[in-house]
Design a protein around this nucleic acid. Structure first.
Lengths: 209, 209
DNA sequence: CCACATCTTAACTCCGCGGTCAAAAACAGG
DNA sequence: CCTGTTTTTGACCGCGGAGTTAAGATGTGG
């Protein structure tokens, strides 16, 4: 509908992502979000009926990128290619949606009390697909006999950490913010670690679309 | 002093760990902690002056185990031994202090606003030591040319994840709670991944105390 | 049994924040 | 410029939770 509506909703969601990520749901005050968005508080309630509602919108804003990241599992069957592309995509989400990413992680950490059931189901479905695929690689002798679940947990954790624990990472690296090349290094090194660590056969053969 | 005091403080810290881990600092109500501890609310204020104070006590309760986990770096110089022991110790912390672990992670995620400066410094110091040691292994050709920081981030993330994202892990594995052997598998597989992935030379020679 | 410290309890205050409202302003279309 | 709709705004309400208080109970040492 109205251009104003769309614009202000975006402003608010952006501000909300940052503050929810920074402080967590309960500690976040609507008025802070309003201030950061440059709008009076009742506007937030005008565009989003409640705090809960706004929060859900923030979460939903990162769902699509997250689901998209698993695409490599559906587009290819070569373990080296899929795992590399998956890791790159996951790190890219951490890099490009750091706030929403953090909000999502926090949500999961607390038992996903606000995550709509259908989204949780969709992610679960993806997980099953992915671990089946990994299992099939193991069965075909294309990689070591790893447990697919644990492998996924490690990949999730290692890629998410660049968004979730940015404070720690800043402190350790001494940089206020990681540069593009830092993210590239992270992705490259993690890929190397996973591929080599799982004994993945790097046959460039099976590169089917 | 009083045995009662000591006992009740422990009760409260235990209850507080669980609730803070579950809900986060801001969402936690003192009365819930009191209820779980089986005490009236003012008792919590009697033993701990404030919510903030109690929260800090919870955090401090996990600092020691966390710092201890880095011992392997000081006790040995063989990369395979150190990394394996480190990973085992880290996962053990996640397993044995799941609540406090989660509270700590949440604290770091939000920029460590309550973490005493001296503790942050101590952890930073450990990190420097650890990454120096890894760098020395690289320099001596005992492992691939990995970036020590990124390697540490991956290890931290992958081990912490078993405490922080227990909900997700439960859902994926279909188990309400991981068994001892699940943790063992996790540690074993992660060790394998890291050692092989970093091309660590498994010479059982350098096992000096 | 007394005196003193420790601990428990119910009732209370205070204030900050989620959420509301009604009126004013800005906008849109004819 | 008039009319209806969308958006903005400041003032307001009510609740719930952090923290307090002061009196009572229980413990402890002589």
């Amino acid at each position: 509908m109205s251009r104003i509506r769309e614009h202000n909703r975006e402003l608010i969601i952006q501000a909300a992502s940052e503050i929810f990520a920074d402080q967590g749901y309960a500690a976040t005050k609507i008025i802070e979000i309003a201030n950061r968005a440059g709008l009076p508080k009742p506007n937030v309630y005008y565009y989003f009926k409640s705090k809960e509602n706004l929060y859900r919108s923030v979460i939903e804003s990162v769902i699509d990128p997250l689901l998209q990241a698993a695409q490599p599992f559906y587009e290819d069957d070569d373990p080296a290619t899929v795992l590399e592309q998956y890791i790159i995509a996951k790190i890219k989400v951490s890099q490009q949606h750091p706030h929403a990413s953090k909000v999502f992680a926090s949500e999961i950490m607390h038992g996903a009390p606000h995550l709509p059931e259908d989204i949780a189901d969709k992610m679960m479905e993806q997980t099953i697909q992915s671990s089946n695929k990994i299992q099939s690689w193991v069965d075909r002798g294309l990689m070591d006999r790893v447990d697919p679940h644990h492998l996924l947990f490690t990949i999730w954790a290692a890629t998410q950490t660049y968004a979730d624990f940015d404070w720690q990472i800043s402190r350790v690296t001494g940089k206020d913010k990681l540069s593009q090349s830092d993210y590239d290094t992270a992705a490259q090194q993690l890929t190397q670690l996973i591929l080599k660590g799982c004994g993945v056969q790097t046959s460039k053969a099976a590169k089917a679309g």
